[in-house]
Amino acid sequence: MAVQGAAALVQNANFKGFFAGKIYEGNLKSVCVPGLNCYSCPGAVGSCPIGSLQNALSANKFKFPYYVLGLLIFFGALLGRLVCGFLCPFGLLQDLLHKIPFPKKIKSFKGDKLLRKLKYAVLIVTVIILPLFVKLTPVFCKYLCPSGTASGLLLALGDNTLFKLFGSRFAWKACVLGMIVLLSVVIYRPFCKYLCPLGAFYAPFNKVAAVRIAVDADKCVSCGKCADACNMCVNPSQTPNHTECIRCGDCIHACPTKALRCTWPGVGNAAGSTVPRTPDHP
């Protein structure tokens, strides 16, 4: 949580913006941050990758978005969904909300697996296809993005005149944000699991990213403690590089035999005397 807090602070280091109700206008904003952090957040010092991608795709004169896509692939190839686990401010917000005590926390439910596919549809339909055809309309930002809604609220707290401009669209977006906030108390990271297009983009990179998790088959006693510890409902001993894994490290801490470990290319795999034997490293 300390790393997540530090990452959120670094990405939102324009502290005076929160008081003035104004956004940062410096050159750093030509670079996208790895996580979902709206560029209209008064603290944001970088650009939102999903907003930038939609903006590029919905431009009147279409140009293939080499720059934004390059940055997204770079983050994905280096870190995979570790971005979700450690660098996304909205992930941190959901983590904090999930710490609020509630009588019955829901880990999984009927239809959970199917619902997780929704984020891929959100990525393809609202971030790629619709902005391509409905010009100058970042559909995901406009109708769904809770980070943007929270940014609007933060801006309005600094500059009260903005409150007068909020209408039905804001009411809709506030409902979406409110639902995610309420659900986050009961379900671990509902936005990351079911809606986030950025998580959907990074998910396939988990299998090829520089940061991966390896299982030492000689040490694993198949006790299932790693799967029990995983809030994303992954079984790390079977699929350590599953698309849903956000690299939070809970499984590594839960493993009684230290069979799980985080690896980098050239480090970890060959560091020990045993070679991990997993579906990803047969």
Binding site: I23, C38, Y39, A44, N55, A56, P138, G152, L155
Partner: peptide, 16 residues
């Protein structure tokens, strides 16, 4: 282009 979009308040994003 990314910078040009990011230095203005994104009205769609904030719900206006």
């Amino acid at each position: 282009q990314v910078l040009a979009k990011a230095v203005k308040i994104c009205l769609e994003c904030v719900g206006i």
